[in-house]
Design a protein around this nucleic acid. Sequence first.
DNA 1: GCCGTTTTCGGCCCGACTGTTTTCAGTCG
Length: 571
Amino acid sequence: MPVHNAEIAAMLDQAAELLEIRGDNPFRVRAYRRAARVVEGLPRSVTSLLAAGEKLSALPGIGDDLAGKIAGIAASGKFDLLEGLKRELPGELAEIAALPGLGPKRVKLLHGELGVRSLEDLRRAIRQGKLRSLRGFGPIMERKLQGALAKPVAEKRFRLTVAEVEAEALVNHLRGAAGVGHVVVAGSFRRRRDSVGDLDILVTARDGAAIGARLAAYENVATVAARGPTRTTVVLRSGLQVDLRVVPEASYGAALMYFTGSKAHNIALRNMAIERGWKLNEYGLFEGKRRIAGTTEAEIYRKLGLPEIPPELREDRGEIAAARKKQLPALVTLSDIRGDLHVHSTWSDGTVAIAEMAAAARARGYSYMAITDHSRRLTVAHGLDPGRLGRQIDEIDRLNDQLKGFTVLKGSEVDILADGTLDLPDRILDRLDVVVAAVHYKFDLPRAAQTERLIRAMDNRHVSILAHPTGRLLGERDAYDVDIERVVAAAGERGCYLEINAEPDRLDLDDVHARAAKEMGVKLAISTDAHSVAALDYMRLGVDQARRGWLEPGDVLNTRPLGDLKKRLKR
DNA sequence: GCCGTTTTCGGCCCGACTGTTTTCAGTCG
């Protein structure tokens, strides 16, 4: 049973947490955390890297020691150091440290002085009034902890589209304040991560307190968590946390960079500043007391000898080295997209007729669109059998006769059956321009069977694109257990394309696997899976994830003009 | 524990805010 990168990262994180509570060298703790982030962001699994004879110690932040430990975890699924730490300290201490206001130091005190080993122990200690006797604890902390223990809030991430609605309203509200310059959403929102944990809003103004007051007075604010002259933190009714930072105009670039992150990217840049005898913080780049850059991000990057790095790449996953060598990718943009290759109509479960969808696609500047309605097995979606699909093909032919300068491609989103065969016979698939193959049931097959299923589907030369390859639904359903690297490799061998499904709850493939595909020379299609006209606009979210995956226009099938596209769809 | 165009040893990003303290440690981002 191969150990996933995410599992390795979780073990490294947990070890870091317990090491920190134990009071170990903070830099050792940081090394474990950094290694966790590096493993998490690897485009290939540790298992396959090792199988290929690659040295983990070549990865940034991973030396001989951690390389050995990570290899050990990959081989056995066990982490001796972590097991030992758990024998020494109760594992639940990590959960206690996650409570607001509690960190390693206070948890160590709780454990050492009061013998707290569990959340229940902590509740009891509070009930018995023991907490406030400890140094660093007082009545306010006691009350807050009581609240947090009473109704624990699961860590929640929000879909980009949900965050966008909240952000737009809030930005408009803040723009209404007097003396406001820039108002911009930074953080993972600006880096276009597939979901966000909070909103980081940067404002330039002279009077930070006034802007903070304006945020606190926003109608959707549930609680104000912190309030200072330059920083204010609130929690909205939706549960979304908002961090506001206010800086002077001259610090705009530095603050935007700081607030955009990622943290690891910032640390790397700050280290570059240190190497040059400078200091980089959210107010600017400084030589001694003198600010030598800070008004724009570009200016700071330039001083550090780098071209400006697009926010989507700022994850400390090699972008700084690439920038240094002037080898940053020229990322795909929405305007490079010439068509949508996965679209539904009223023939199955779409809400709009083909002609109307075509007009909407055309209005978006596209020159083609594939209609890919569901196949017969998906009865709830009125999936098409060969007879109905034949009639749909005829309808599209008639429609194309009337259209000038736009082409509706004939397609199907054909179900991949449990054994990897397709839900429609070859004789009808033969009449189509685009076949998008997808899994819609039996998500729980064993890994090997699921992997074989997808590969067998791609064995069929009619299959052009493998849709939503991992089947994940953000916040609802994990990816099915599949060896995605083998699937990517198999797609490459067969000349099959992989989809980045742009639906906001799918975004599948994700950024990391899209990049893996690129590195393995496999091309991708960015498709909306639209069931309505409005959903065609999700294309931009798919492009965002493609950019996070370092994709350039040449890596994306639907940047090709129609003639070229048709040639590439032939296998 | 990692790392090196000043270093193989001695550094390791940087600042804001809270609740505690009585000048600051701890937490957070």
